[in-house]
């Protein structure tokens, strides 16, 4: 690993928003006297990302994910704090910086609606000053990875949503950025297109070594692509570490799955832990982490030969994330 390509320290963004109560009277009053409220979208976060990493950025709506990506790509000025991306301060918006990064937002287009994507790519070639050889190589690679061949010569307005997203990816990455910020890249796509985009991001990262910071509401995206995740909630970073460790860190229990020979799923195993699932011969128990060893030993001892199999698992990652998003977990620094 080299120097971090993304370094963030105490980054904070506060928006000032106007607010008023409902009703005509409040509306009239607001014309003459407007009330404002400060909303802290990002509340002082710090992290670093190494070259070539694919990092998932998780958090519920309004957690501060997109605001952070916008600051790191130079779209927004922070209220305070520091950040560098590829050695540049993003919000200075130097051409050299903008030429080396990309921010792809799943619901935003950068293509000209009425002309074929191939022509939009040519425009981008000139804007990013990409030499003809590099342009052809990058375009051919994207055409190959995204299977774009037949789509490039159709006007963008005639493409389906999935087709357009693929072309958007090509437009967003034609300049071979070293850092790509992907904000909900699979939003609105069907399952097969989501899987395709996931494969593309993984392969793109493998081929080019680009660093990727990805937000998504779909855990499948994160599980498929990211070994490391950042979890943000109410603008604060709750977790920064391995995806595999997220459940361990964020859920105070494990699951013991006991399979019984005699199909004794009807037997009451509630004494060993909270029963969360029960199907033929198989019972899943939720047990506090500190009690797992003791409960496992008791189960083995009490059930003896009737036990066909016993496994201890972390809860599904979705469950951990759901607990965080629903506010069940207290804020804990990673």
């Amino acid at each position: 690993m080299g120097e971090p390509v993304v370094e963030v320290a105490d980054l904070m963004k506060t928006f000032r928003v106007s607010e008023r109560e409902e009703g005509l009277g409040a509306t009239v009053r607001s014309v003459f006297r407007r009330r404002y409220r400060d909303v802290q979208a990002v509340a002082g976060i710090s992290f670093g990302i190494e070259p070539g990493e694919v990092v998932g950025f998780l958090g519920p709506n309004g957690a501060g994910k997109t605001t952070t990506l916008k600051m790191l790509s130079g779209l927004l000025f922070p209220t305070s704090g520091r950040a560098t991306v590829l050695g540049h301060v993003p919000w200075r918006r130097e051409d050299r910086f903008l030429s080396r990064i990309a921010l792809l937002m799943g619901n935003r287009t950068q293509l000209v609606w009425d002309i074929p994507a191939a022509d939009s790519l040519r425009v981008l070639q000139e804007i990013y000053r990409i030499g003809e050889t590099d342009y052809r190589r990058a375009r051919d690679e994207l055409v190959d990875l995204l299977d774009l061949g037949p789509l490039l010569n159709k006007p963008v307005r005639n493409l389906s949503l999935g087709e357009r997203m693929k072309v958007e990816f090509a437009a967003g990455l034609i300049h071979s950025p070293q850092v790509a910020f992907l904000d909900e890249p699979t939003i609105g796509l069907d399952v097969s297109m989501q899987a395709r985009i996931r494969r593309f991001v993984a392969e793109y990262n493998r081929r080019t070594g680009a660093t990727v910071l990805l937000t998504s509401h779909y855990m499948d995206d994160v599980v498929a692509l990211c070994r490391r995740v950042l979890v943000i909630h109410h603008g604060k970073l709750l977790y920064d570490g391995a995806l595999a460790g997220l459940a361990e860190r964020m859920t105070p229990y494990k699951l013991i799955v006991a399979t019984l020979h005699d199909g004794a799923a009807h037997e009451d195993l509630g004494a060993y832990g909270a029963i969360v699932a029960r199907e033929e011969g198989r019972v899943t128990l939720r047990v506090p982490r500190e009690n797992v060893a003791e409960r496992t030993a008791r189960l083995v001892g009490d059930l003896g030969d009737r036990l066909a199999d016993l496994s201890v698992e972390d809860p599904p990652i979705e469950e951990a994330v759901d607990r965080i998003f629903s506010g069940e977990l207290p804020v804990a620094t990673a």
């Binding site: 918006r93 051409d95 030429s99 921010l103 937002m105 935003r108 804007i127």
Partner: peptide, 12 residues
């Protein structure tokens, strides 16, 4: 419409 952002992200 949020269409300014993609333009601001380009070196032009």
């Amino acid at each position: 419409q949020g269409r300014l952002s993609p333009l601001l992200l380009r070196p032009l």
